[in-house]
Design a protein around this nucleic acid. Structure first.
Length: 664
DNA sequence: CTTTTCCTGTGT
DNA sequence: ACACAGGAAAAG
């Protein structure tokens, strides 16, 4: 992207990046498109009139404005200019309303909540002050964080990148290629924003809808029949107790009635370490196969890897490729080579039945255990493990010629869950939405669309998705609860929460290392948040450059791989130039201040698991490890520093470090 | 019953 | 990057 001038805007600290001076407000000019502040004195050409000042767009935006999706690439960008100018010129609107209208224009979506500024200083306002996406001026939707510490909506960011921009819209730092191509959603921000919204809409916000990893202890040794399986623990032993009481051919969400263990069901956003633990919660039973189903009955769930060549993930809808077509004779489970056409049979037919009937299909999203991170990955995929994303309907399916030249079955999944998706800060679940236009349909064959009315559909009256027709009768025995295991029942402790919204929000801002509310937060490109000091401490003594010795010879020094403390992503580049997420820091500071003002002594509720301890209660007798509400024995197990989970993650870290990987 | 198939997961 | 164990459910 060739900039025709070297003009620069004001950086995150408000200082002009060109003259390094913080200009007074009257010398600051705000771009009407990207809302970045610029120093008038350092601009080659400044607007002449008041009117043109209001409509001014910065050198970065003037060449190539953001396009609303409706006019995607047909070149009618001037429409947007006209519309934005009209909004800016409308004296009857407040700045906030103008911002919202701009947002609607650019994002193509309409906010339902009329942004009623009722004067009450809500936590939402605190977030609003610091966190707004500088494109749309709203709290970021599907927030992504640049390595330079600025937060945007995923879609705004992608539009910006789509125009060939490779600099941060706020500070003009270079956006690394990986961030540009695979921005990660910052799930801490997602939960915080959603929580703040919920606290405003209904003061008595229900159970905390933030999820953490679930770990299972009930993995009987008898599962590991062979010596090797016993040694490796997980590689092949799809066993362990199934905790929920649904039959294996159960369709739709798993509800509290079928969860005697926790009495809460499988919630959207829950994560498991791997496919086997996911299986234990009944969300997706096959431990290898991607599709759970029966060809004459329907498919109950699919596992979607966030990094498949053909798959396309847009969050609320995605395209899925069927199974089969590969020669797996012998022991070749890994054969990626397709050698014949896929047909609508077996599992692919099961999916087609679910499409025909309009059944809800559970969707599990995960990343393959890939140790080189060269593959493309979906922005929506979890950083590690398997995540339950809710139920989707298959609206149509077809066949097309796949990348490898053989035909593959394709499915259009559209989300239809009553709970919001893990990546959105919306407070509510899905509403019926128009089907996206699928370009590959033009070349598709065997197109199949549902004719009959769907079994699972939106009920306008109740404003919820529900079974409009009776769900198909189960043909398999339900997994019955093991009565003698009753002692393990957890007391479903979730209502014992008297923390204020502010305190709950602060809790969410816990550093993934020290578990305390972050000071000087940094956000990695893989969207994990830490205190700057904890983060740096995690890498003391490790350098980014490493000598590579092989057989006595010294090879050229090679870039070392430094992994994120929370996931296997290599973040050595990020470490080179560590930037504090100032926007996040401002939010934390404001929340802390106001919490102190309100001096309501925080009730010392010993957090019964699920939550990290924070510095709020300043009690640190917990290990800080995420534990579940389990019996004391399990608790002890979890508190042991050398738990299975930790050992595996360490092992993995070593593994990745050995892989020479020079990305891009 | 046996055979086939599955977007694992780990060790080298 | 490569090899591969040997589970579970569908399908025959």
């Amino acid at each position: 992207m060739a900039h025709d001038s070297i003009q620069l805007p004001c950086g995150g600290d408000g200082a002009c990046m060109r003259c390094k001076v913080t200009p007074p407000t009257e010398e600051t000019l705000t771009c009407s498109i990207c809302a970045a502040p610029w120093h008038v004195g350092c601009l080659a050409s400044k607007p002449e009139t008041l009117a043109s000042t209001l409509q001014w767009h910065c050198p970065d935006c003037s060449g190539d404005p953001l396009l609303p999706p409706s006019v995607a690439t047909d070149g009618s960008s001037s429409e947007l200019f006209v519309a934005i100018k009209a909004i800016e010129a409308d004296e009857s609107l407040t700045e906030k309303e103008k911002a919202r209208k701009r947002q609607e224009l650019v994002s193509g979506r309409v906010e339902e909540d009329g942004g009623n500024g009722k004067g009450e200083s809500s936590v939402l306002d605190v977030l609003d002050e610091s966190l707004n996406c500088s494109f749309c001026m709203q709290l970021p939707d599907r927030p992504v964080t640049t390595p330079c510490g600025h937060n945007f909506c995923l879609k705004c960011f992608q539009k910006w990148i789509g125009q060939g921009k490779r600099t941060c819209a706020k500070c003009r730092s270079t956006v690394p290629p990986k961030m540009a191509s695979q921005p990660r959603i910052n799930s801490t921000l997602v939960s915080v924003i959603r929580m703040a919204k919920l606290s405003k809409s209904n003061a008595a916000a229900g159970p905390l809808k933030v999820f953490h990893f679930i770990h299972n202890q009930d993995r009987p040794d008898k599962a590991f029949t062979t010596e090797r399986a016993q040694k490796s623990g997980k590689a092949n032993a799809a066993s362990g107790k199934i905790f929920v009481t649904v039959p294996p051919d159960h369709f739709g969400p798993i509800t509290a009635e079928n969860d005697p263990d926790r009495n809460q069901g499988v919630l959207v956003g829950e994560c498991w370490e791997d496919r086997l633990e996911c299986r234990q919660w009944g969300a997706h039973l096959p431990h290898v196969a991607g599709i759970a189903g029966q060809s004459n009955y329907g498919a109950q769930s699919v596992a979607l890897s966030g990094g498949y060549d053909d798959d396309e993930d847009h969050g609320e809808w995605f395209l899925y490729t069927g199974s089969g077509g590969r020669d797996l004779s012998g022991n070749k489970r890994t054969n990626k080579e397709q050698s014949f056409d896929q047909k609508f049979e077996k599992m692919n037919e099961a999916l087609r039945v679910s499409c025909k009937k309009g059944y809800p299909v559970r969707v599990l999203l995960f990343l393959l255990m890939c140790r080189s991170h060269k593959e493309k990955r979906s922005s929506y995929a979890p950083e590690k493990g398997v995540r339950y994303d809710g139920v989707y309907r298959i609206e149509k399916c077809w066949r097309k010629v796949g990348i490898q030249g053989f035909k593959v079955c394709r499915y259009l999944f559209v989300r239809c869950d009553n709970e919001p998706a893990p990546w959105t800060s919306d407070e509510h679940g899905d509403r019926p939405r128009p089907l996206p236009a699928i370009s590959e349909l033009k070349k598709a064959t065997d197109i199949f669309e549902r004719k009959e009315s769907p079994s699972w559909d939106f009920d306008e009256e109740g404003s919820r998705w529900k079974w409009k027709k009776a769900p198909p009768p189960s043909k398999k025995p339900a997994n019955v609860a093991d009565l003698e295991e009753g002692k393990r029942t957890r007391k479903a402790i979730r209502h014992s929460r008297k923390l204020s919204t502010r305190e709950r929000l602060l809790k969410e801002f816990g550093c993934l290392i020290c578990q305390q509310v972050m000071s000087l937060p940094v956000t990695t490109p893989c969207a994990h948040n830490f205190c700057k000091s904890c983060f740096e401490a995690a890498f003391t003594g490790k350098t980014a450059i490493r000598e590579r010795n092989k057989g006595g010879r010294t090879l050229r020094s090679q870039k070392n791989i430094l992994n994120c403390p929370s996931c296997p992503t290599d973040i050595s580049d990020f470490l080179q130039d560590l930037q504090v997420n100032r926007e996040l820091m401002d939010v934390i500071e404001s929340l802390k201040q106001k919490s102190e003002e309100n001096e309501e002594p925080a009730e010392e509720e010993p957090m019964n698991g699920l939550e990290e301890s924070t510095d709020l209660g300043s009690s640190d007798e917990k290990t800080g490890k995420k534990t579940e509400n389990v019996d004391p024995k399990d608790d002890l197990e979890n508190a042991l520093p050398n738990s299975e989970e930790e050992r595996t993650s360490k092992r993995r870290k070593v593994d990745t470090a050995q892989v020479g990987d020079d990305d891009l």
